[in-house]
Simulated scan of single mutants.
Amino acid sequence: MRHYIASATFATALLATAASAQNVGIATSNPGSLFHNIGTAVANAANAEGLNTTIQPATSPNQYIPFVNSGGIEFGVSNLQEVDYAISGAEWWNGVQNPNLRIVATLQPLIEAIFVRADSDIMSVADLKGQRMTDGYTAQNTILPQLSAIYATAGLTRDDVEQVSVASVVAGADAFMAGDVAGFIFANGAGKVREADASVGGLRALGIDDPSDANLAAAREFWPTASFVKVAAGAAPGVLEDTTYIAFPQVVFTNADVPDEVVYQMAKAIYEQAAVMTETFAPMAAFNPADIMGDPGNAEYHPGALKFFAEAGLK
């Protein structure tokens, strides 16, 4: 089994952020990832609103969520399911709770797919049986249950493929571009997907062939916040025809002790500077400011965010 190793110097970056008292920081995944793109867009919106905001990348949310929980950095971007698990200590958090996390804003759903070469014979998730596929995700615990959720919609499990261990989604895309695997999982529209699309001469984003209630229930056995969404042909690399994909909510989160006024400004920026976010990262056009106060699961909204929502007339 080939291993791809990724490293991060996130703790050093956090110290630099903490030393700059005039700044607030947003923790993101590595460059090329969807959360890096989104974090950059949110930072630009916040800067347009008057906050002095910088981003600090790490390999994955399961690395930087504890830093937000401990107050090492003010904000982070992630999917709601991982924040829910982090608060309760469920799944890969192994009972370690992160009770200081609070939600600032609900963003557009993260739409996810398994990508293969467009010129391959793999036309569906079911065709992945027996293929060499990225797996392991040692630095990104959130990915394995997401993979399992996608496989479940085709009646497969991770044991039905030949597993090639990688550290992260970015490392997985690199393994694919090197020709070491037949497919990799990533968020639709991310920069790394565009890089892979150009590198191999075109991708196919495998969809959910049967978006039935039964298949959604099968996916939710592994990823409880999953939903199915339809994406139009050409909307993102690899979407070759109108196709249904798995999706789940994304959020901006913070620490309970971040001052209300700072969180208020961040929520206001996300709501009022949606155009800036779209200019930064085109897929942010799917964000509807009216949906910023989505269901937070077992999390709570920060009082600063609730103050803005009340002023904006949101419920």
Rank of each mutant, 00 (worst) to 15 (best):
P109Y: 07
L107A: 03
D209P: 08
S88I: 01
I143V: 15
A149D: 00
G183V: 13
Q108P: 02
D119Y: 05
E195Q: 15
M133G: 10
D197C: 04
G201K: 10
G172V: 07
R117S: 15
P211R: 10
A113P: 13
Q108A: 04
P145V: 11
V200Y: 03
S70G: 04
A217K: 08
A126V: 06
L203N: 03
S88M: 08
F176W: 15
F186N: 13
I185K: 09
R117N: 15
W92N: 03
I114Q: 04
G71D: 06
Q163P: 06
N98Q: 10
I208A: 14
E82C: 03
L206V: 01
N141D: 09
V164I: 07
I143P: 00
I111A: 11
V164F: 00
Y85V: 09
V96Y: 10
N215S: 12
G179L: 14
T138I: 11
R132M: 04
L101M: 08
L203S: 11
N215W: 06
I87L: 04
I111L: 11
A149T: 03
Q97S: 04
I150E: 02
P145E: 10
I143Q: 01
N100E: 08
Y137N: 05
L147M: 13
I87M: 05
L147P: 05
S124N: 12
D174T: 15
D119F: 09
N94I: 09
G172W: 09
Q81E: 12
L110R: 06
V77S: 00
I87V: 05
V104G: 06
D119H: 07
I114G: 02
V125A: 05
I73W: 03
Q163W: 06
V161G: 01
S199F: 14
F184I: 14
G89K: 10
V164R: 01
A178E: 13
V83C: 01
F186C: 12
L144M: 12
G130S: 00
S78A: 07
T142A: 07
D159P: 06
I103P: 00
S70Q: 07
D127E: 10
I103R: 00
V169N: 11
A126R: 02
I208R: 08
L107H: 01
E112V: 12
A175S: 14
A152R: 07
P99V: 05
F176Q: 15
E82T: 00
A205N: 02
S148P: 05
A187E: 06
I111P: 04
G95P: 13
D127W: 07
G76V: 05
K129H: 01
V161P: 01
T153M: 03
A182Q: 12
I143E: 02
S78G: 03
G207D: 00
D174C: 15
A152D: 12
E74A: 14
G130V: 00
R158M: 14
N79T: 00
I111H: 11
S78Q: 01
D135N: 02
D209Y: 10
S165H: 08
G202D: 02
